[in-house]
Design a protein around this nucleic acid. Structure first.
Length: 273
DNA sequence: AGATTCGCCTGAGAGC
DNA sequence: TGCTCTCAGGCGAATC
Protein backbone atom coordinates (compact mmCIF):
# COMPACT_ATOMS: atom_id res chain seq x y z
CA UNK A 1 0.00 0.00 0.00
CA UNK A 2 2.15 2.79 -1.28
CA UNK A 3 2.28 5.92 0.80
CA UNK A 4 4.85 8.65 0.33
CA UNK A 5 7.95 6.60 1.31
CA UNK A 6 7.00 3.78 -1.03
CA UNK A 7 6.31 6.11 -3.96
CA UNK A 8 9.58 7.94 -3.31
CA UNK A 9 11.40 4.60 -3.23
CA UNK A 10 9.90 3.72 -6.61
CA UNK A 11 10.80 7.15 -7.98
CA UNK A 12 14.43 6.75 -7.00
CA UNK A 13 14.48 3.30 -8.52
CA UNK A 14 13.04 4.22 -11.90
CA UNK A 15 14.49 7.71 -12.42
CA UNK A 16 17.97 6.55 -13.55
CA UNK A 17 16.36 4.35 -16.20
CA UNK A 18 14.07 7.02 -17.59
CA UNK A 19 15.60 10.47 -17.25
CA UNK A 20 17.17 11.61 -20.49
CA UNK A 21 15.75 8.62 -22.37
CA UNK A 22 13.09 8.40 -25.06
CA UNK A 23 9.94 6.30 -24.82
CA UNK A 24 10.05 3.63 -27.50
CA UNK A 25 6.71 2.06 -26.75
CA UNK A 26 3.90 1.82 -24.24
CA UNK A 27 2.29 -1.58 -24.30
CA UNK A 28 -1.13 -1.12 -22.74
CA UNK A 29 -2.70 -4.49 -22.04
CA UNK A 30 -5.39 -3.42 -19.60
CA UNK A 31 -6.82 0.10 -19.84
CA UNK A 32 -9.34 -0.49 -17.06
CA UNK A 33 -7.35 1.24 -14.37
CA UNK A 34 -8.76 4.14 -12.38
CA UNK A 35 -10.58 6.63 -14.69
CA UNK A 36 -9.79 4.33 -17.63
CA UNK A 37 -6.50 4.76 -19.48
CA UNK A 38 -6.75 6.56 -22.83
CA UNK A 39 -6.20 3.86 -25.43
CA UNK A 40 -4.56 6.49 -27.67
CA UNK A 41 -1.77 6.78 -25.13
CA UNK A 42 0.67 4.41 -26.89
CA UNK A 43 0.43 6.51 -30.05
CA UNK A 44 0.73 9.75 -28.08
CA UNK A 45 3.86 8.65 -26.23
CA UNK A 46 5.96 6.90 -28.85
CA UNK A 47 9.30 8.58 -29.44
CA UNK A 48 8.90 11.26 -26.79
CA UNK A 49 11.65 12.16 -24.32
CA UNK A 50 11.42 11.84 -20.55
CA UNK A 51 13.20 14.81 -19.05
CA UNK A 52 12.67 14.25 -15.33
CA UNK A 53 10.94 11.87 -12.92
CA UNK A 54 9.57 13.69 -9.88
CA UNK A 55 7.03 13.05 -7.16
CA UNK A 56 4.20 15.18 -5.80
CA UNK A 57 2.17 13.59 -3.02
CA UNK A 58 1.76 9.97 -4.09
CA UNK A 59 1.91 10.80 -7.79
CA UNK A 60 4.88 10.14 -10.06
CA UNK A 61 5.37 12.81 -12.72
CA UNK A 62 7.29 12.06 -15.89
CA UNK A 63 8.02 15.39 -17.54
CA UNK A 64 7.94 14.98 -21.33
CA UNK A 65 8.38 17.49 -24.15
CA UNK A 66 5.87 20.19 -25.14
CA UNK A 67 4.84 20.75 -21.52
CA UNK A 68 3.22 17.33 -21.20
CA UNK A 69 3.40 15.19 -18.10
CA UNK A 70 2.73 11.50 -17.72
CA UNK A 71 1.01 11.16 -14.35
CA UNK A 72 1.27 7.80 -12.63
CA UNK A 73 -0.53 6.79 -9.45
CA UNK A 74 -0.01 3.39 -7.85
CA UNK A 75 -3.35 3.25 -6.07
CA UNK A 76 -2.90 0.85 -3.24
CA UNK A 77 -1.54 -2.27 -4.87
CA UNK A 78 0.42 -0.85 -7.79
CA UNK A 79 4.06 -1.74 -8.40
CA UNK A 80 6.53 -0.51 -10.99
CA UNK A 81 9.50 -2.72 -11.68
CA UNK A 82 12.49 -2.30 -13.91
CA UNK A 83 12.99 -5.66 -15.60
CA UNK A 84 16.62 -6.54 -16.27
CA UNK A 85 15.54 -9.07 -18.87
CA UNK A 86 12.20 -9.19 -20.69
CA UNK A 87 9.80 -11.71 -19.18
CA UNK A 88 6.36 -12.65 -20.49
CA UNK A 89 3.70 -10.55 -18.75
CA UNK A 90 1.78 -12.23 -15.94
CA UNK A 91 -1.65 -11.68 -14.51
CA UNK A 92 -2.24 -8.04 -13.48
CA UNK A 93 0.76 -6.78 -15.47
CA UNK A 94 -1.27 -3.99 -17.05
CA UNK A 95 1.31 -2.04 -19.00
CA UNK A 96 4.97 -1.95 -20.01
CA UNK A 97 6.91 1.20 -20.76
CA UNK A 98 9.98 0.56 -22.88
CA UNK A 99 12.71 3.11 -23.60
CA UNK A 100 14.74 3.33 -26.78
CA UNK A 101 17.78 2.03 -24.90
CA UNK A 102 15.81 -1.07 -23.97
CA UNK A 103 14.87 -0.46 -20.33
CA UNK A 104 11.57 -2.11 -19.53
CA UNK A 105 9.24 -0.77 -16.83
CA UNK A 106 6.39 -3.06 -15.92
CA UNK A 107 3.27 -1.97 -14.02
CA UNK A 108 1.54 -4.59 -11.88
CA UNK A 109 -1.65 -3.81 -9.96
CA UNK A 110 -4.09 -6.52 -8.82
CA UNK A 111 -6.69 -4.07 -7.50
CA UNK A 112 -6.42 -1.64 -10.39
CA UNK A 113 -6.83 1.43 -8.19
CA UNK A 114 -3.85 3.02 -9.87
CA UNK A 115 -4.07 5.45 -12.78
CA UNK A 116 -2.10 6.51 -15.84
CA UNK A 117 -2.87 9.85 -17.45
CA UNK A 118 -1.25 12.24 -19.87
CA UNK A 119 -1.54 15.87 -18.82
CA UNK A 120 -1.15 18.55 -21.47
CA UNK A 121 -1.13 21.38 -18.93
CA UNK A 122 1.13 22.39 -16.07
CA UNK A 123 0.65 19.50 -13.65
CA UNK A 124 0.48 21.67 -10.54
CA UNK A 125 -2.60 23.45 -11.91
CA UNK A 126 -4.32 20.23 -12.98
CA UNK A 127 -7.35 19.08 -11.05
CA UNK A 128 -5.32 16.21 -9.63
CA UNK A 129 -2.66 18.33 -7.96
CA UNK A 130 -4.01 21.84 -7.50
CA UNK A 131 -5.96 21.18 -4.28
CA UNK A 132 -3.13 19.34 -2.57
CA UNK A 133 -1.57 20.54 0.65
CA UNK A 134 2.17 20.90 1.27
CA UNK A 135 4.73 18.11 1.14
CA UNK A 136 5.29 16.75 4.65
CA UNK A 137 9.07 16.79 4.21
CA UNK A 138 9.09 20.25 2.65
CA UNK A 139 9.50 23.65 4.31
CA UNK A 140 5.82 24.65 4.26
CA UNK A 141 4.68 21.96 6.65
CA UNK A 142 5.35 23.19 10.17
CA UNK A 143 3.61 23.34 13.52
CA UNK A 144 2.12 26.78 13.05
CA UNK A 145 0.69 25.82 9.66
CA UNK A 146 -0.87 22.65 11.03
CA UNK A 147 -2.29 24.45 14.04
CA UNK A 148 -3.92 27.04 11.80
CA UNK A 149 -5.42 24.41 9.53
CA UNK A 150 -6.88 22.39 12.40
CA UNK A 151 -8.50 25.31 14.18
CA UNK A 152 -12.23 24.79 14.61
CA UNK A 153 -12.22 21.32 13.10
CA UNK A 154 -14.11 18.62 14.98
CA UNK A 155 -12.95 15.62 12.94
CA UNK A 156 -10.30 13.36 14.44
CA UNK A 157 -6.66 14.36 14.10
CA UNK A 158 -5.97 11.07 12.33
CA UNK A 159 -8.59 11.74 9.66
CA UNK A 160 -7.18 15.21 8.99
CA UNK A 161 -3.59 14.00 8.97
CA UNK A 162 -4.66 11.69 6.15
CA UNK A 163 -6.49 14.50 4.33
CA UNK A 164 -4.34 15.42 1.33
CA UNK A 165 -5.68 18.99 1.34
CA UNK A 166 -3.95 19.53 4.68
CA UNK A 167 -0.76 17.54 4.10
CA UNK A 168 -0.03 14.98 1.40
CA UNK A 169 1.48 11.54 1.47
CA UNK A 170 0.38 10.41 4.94
CA UNK A 171 -1.74 7.27 4.75
CA UNK A 172 -3.06 4.92 7.37
CA UNK A 173 0.26 3.37 8.33
CA UNK A 174 2.29 6.52 8.88
CA UNK A 175 -0.56 8.47 10.47
CA UNK A 176 -0.77 5.85 13.20
CA UNK A 177 2.99 5.71 13.63
CA UNK A 178 3.40 9.49 13.80
CA UNK A 179 0.58 9.88 16.32
CA UNK A 180 2.16 7.25 18.53
CA UNK A 181 5.54 8.96 18.29
CA UNK A 182 3.95 12.30 19.18
CA UNK A 183 1.92 10.84 22.07
CA UNK A 184 -1.43 11.93 20.64
CA UNK A 185 -4.52 9.73 20.47
CA UNK A 186 -5.79 9.23 16.90
CA UNK A 187 -9.41 9.88 17.80
CA UNK A 188 -8.82 13.24 19.43
CA UNK A 189 -10.68 16.19 17.90
CA UNK A 190 -8.16 17.94 15.67
CA UNK A 191 -9.22 21.43 16.73
CA UNK A 192 -8.31 20.63 20.33
CA UNK A 193 -4.63 20.13 19.61
CA UNK A 194 -2.49 22.82 21.19
CA UNK A 195 0.22 24.62 19.29
CA UNK A 196 2.94 22.54 21.04
CA UNK A 197 0.98 19.39 20.16
CA UNK A 198 1.07 20.46 16.52
CA UNK A 199 4.80 21.15 16.60
CA UNK A 200 5.41 17.74 18.15
CA UNK A 201 3.16 16.03 15.62
CA UNK A 202 4.79 17.71 12.64
CA UNK A 203 8.21 16.66 13.92
CA UNK A 204 6.91 13.10 14.35
CA UNK A 205 5.40 12.98 10.85
CA UNK A 206 8.62 14.24 9.31
CA UNK A 207 10.82 11.88 11.31
CA UNK A 208 8.61 8.87 10.62
CA UNK A 209 8.46 9.50 6.88
CA UNK A 210 12.16 10.27 6.62
CA UNK A 211 13.04 7.02 8.41
CA UNK A 212 10.68 5.07 6.19
CA UNK A 213 12.18 6.58 3.03
CA UNK A 214 15.65 5.68 4.30
CA UNK A 215 14.45 2.11 4.90
CA UNK A 216 13.08 1.81 1.37
CA UNK A 217 9.45 1.87 2.50
CA UNK A 218 7.23 -0.59 4.32
CA UNK A 219 6.55 -4.01 2.83
CA UNK A 220 3.47 -5.66 4.28
CA UNK A 221 2.09 -7.84 1.52
CA UNK A 222 2.98 -6.67 -1.88
CA UNK A 223 5.15 -3.58 -1.93
CA UNK A 224 8.60 -3.72 -3.48
CA UNK A 225 10.89 -1.16 -5.00
CA UNK A 226 11.65 -0.72 -8.68
CA UNK A 227 14.35 -3.37 -8.36
CA UNK A 228 11.87 -5.81 -6.84
CA UNK A 229 13.44 -5.66 -3.40
CA UNK A 230 11.18 -5.14 -0.38
CA UNK A 231 11.43 -2.25 2.05
CA UNK A 232 12.23 -2.94 5.66
CA UNK A 233 10.47 -0.22 7.64
CA UNK A 234 7.84 -2.79 8.71
CA UNK A 235 10.28 -3.99 11.36
CA UNK A 236 10.22 -0.48 12.87
CA UNK A 237 6.43 -0.19 13.05
CA UNK A 238 5.36 0.62 16.61
CA UNK A 239 1.58 0.35 16.37
CA UNK A 240 0.30 -0.37 12.86
CA UNK A 241 -1.09 -3.90 12.68
CA UNK A 242 -0.09 -4.65 16.28
CA UNK A 243 -3.51 -4.62 17.97
CA UNK A 244 -3.35 -6.45 21.31
CA UNK A 245 0.42 -6.77 21.26
CA UNK A 246 2.53 -4.97 23.87
CA UNK A 247 3.54 -1.38 23.19
CA UNK A 248 7.22 -1.39 22.27
CA UNK A 249 7.77 1.63 24.48
CA UNK A 250 5.80 0.82 27.66
CA UNK A 251 4.57 -2.77 27.32
CA UNK A 252 0.85 -2.10 27.71
CA UNK A 253 -1.34 -4.02 25.23
CA UNK A 254 -2.18 -1.80 22.26
CA UNK A 255 -5.79 -0.81 21.75
CA UNK A 256 -7.68 -0.45 18.52
CA UNK A 257 -10.71 1.26 17.09
CA UNK A 258 -12.20 2.37 13.84
CA UNK A 259 -11.74 6.00 12.91
CA UNK A 260 -13.65 7.23 9.87
CA UNK A 261 -13.85 3.69 8.60
CA UNK A 262 -10.18 2.84 8.99
CA UNK A 263 -8.55 0.64 11.57
CA UNK A 264 -6.42 2.45 14.10
CA UNK A 265 -4.14 1.15 16.81
CA UNK A 266 -2.73 3.19 19.67
CA UNK A 267 -1.27 2.95 23.16
CA UNK A 268 -3.51 4.18 25.96
CA UNK A 269 -0.47 4.95 28.11
CA UNK A 270 1.90 6.58 25.61
CA UNK A 271 -0.92 8.47 23.89
CA UNK A 272 -2.87 9.78 26.88
CA UNK A 273 -5.02 12.32 25.01
C1' DA B 1 -18.77 23.74 4.53
C1' DG B 2 -17.51 19.92 7.04
C1' DA B 3 -17.95 15.04 8.27
C1' DT B 4 -18.71 10.64 6.82
C1' DT B 5 -19.72 6.81 3.78
C1' DC B 6 -19.64 4.55 -0.65
C1' DG B 7 -17.62 2.39 -4.69
C1' DC B 8 -14.08 0.83 -7.32
C1' DC B 9 -11.07 -3.94 -7.23
C1' DT B 10 -8.65 -8.53 -5.95
C1' DG B 11 -6.21 -11.49 -2.75
C1' DA B 12 -5.50 -13.18 1.79
C1' DG B 13 -7.18 -15.13 5.69
C1' DA B 14 -10.86 -16.78 8.80
C1' DG B 15 -14.71 -19.61 9.62
C1' DC B 16 -17.65 -23.32 8.49
C1' DT C 1 -11.28 -29.04 -0.29
C1' DG C 2 -14.01 -25.30 -1.19
C1' DC C 3 -17.30 -22.09 -0.36
C1' DT C 4 -18.63 -17.50 1.73
C1' DC C 5 -17.54 -13.58 4.37
C1' DT C 6 -14.56 -9.85 5.92
C1' DC C 7 -10.91 -6.91 5.52
C1' DA C 8 -7.32 -4.14 3.35
C1' DG C 9 -7.10 0.93 1.44
C1' DG C 10 -6.25 5.87 -2.09
C1' DC C 11 -9.23 8.91 -3.30
C1' DG C 12 -13.10 10.93 -6.03
C1' DA C 13 -18.02 11.01 -5.70
C1' DA C 14 -22.05 11.01 -3.18
C1' DT C 15 -24.60 11.70 0.85
C1' DC C 16 -25.69 13.27 5.38
Amino acid sequence: MPELPEVETIRRGIAPWLEGQRIAHLELREPRLRFGVDTELPALLAGRPVHTVTRRSKYLLLALDRGSTLLIHLGMSGRLHVLPTPLPPGKHDHYDLRTETGALLRYHDPRRFGSLQLLEQAPESSRWLRELGPEPLGPDFDGDYLHARLRGRSASIKALLMDARIVVGVGNIYAQEALHAAGIRPGRAAGRLSRPDCHRLVAAVRATLAQAVAAGGTTLRDFSGADGKPGYFQQDLKVYGRLGQPCRRCGVPLRGSRITGRSSVWCAQCQPR
